[in-house]
């Protein structure tokens, strides 16, 4: 199953990922991404990958475990 990873140092809190897939991503009070779940269900994969590609600082990626 695929998994999502976040680079917390790179994150700038734009929240594009939250808009794209709010079951997977949130932003905390300091403006850093919070992963609400790690494993990406097959039926969510395209949506999560789109959210990952919408990050302005490329702080996210989906990898195949």
């Amino acid at each position: 199953m695929a998994a999502v990873e976040a680079d917390l140092e790179a994150c700038q809190g734009y929240a594009n990922c939250v808009v794209g897939a709010d079951r997977y991503f949130d932003i905390d009070d300091d403006g850093v991404v919070v992963l609400l779940r790690i494993e990406v269900a097959d039926e969510d994969r395209r949506r999560v990958e789109e959210a990952v590609r919408s990050c302005p600082v490329s702080a996210l990626k989906v990898t195949d475990a």
Binding site: G13, Y14, V19, I27
Partner: peptide, 13 residues
């Protein structure tokens, strides 16, 4: 203000 940003972006949707 990250929290307000998230709240407003969700609210617009």
């Amino acid at each position: 203000w990250p929290r307000a940003l998230v709240r407003c972006r969700k609210a617009m949707r």
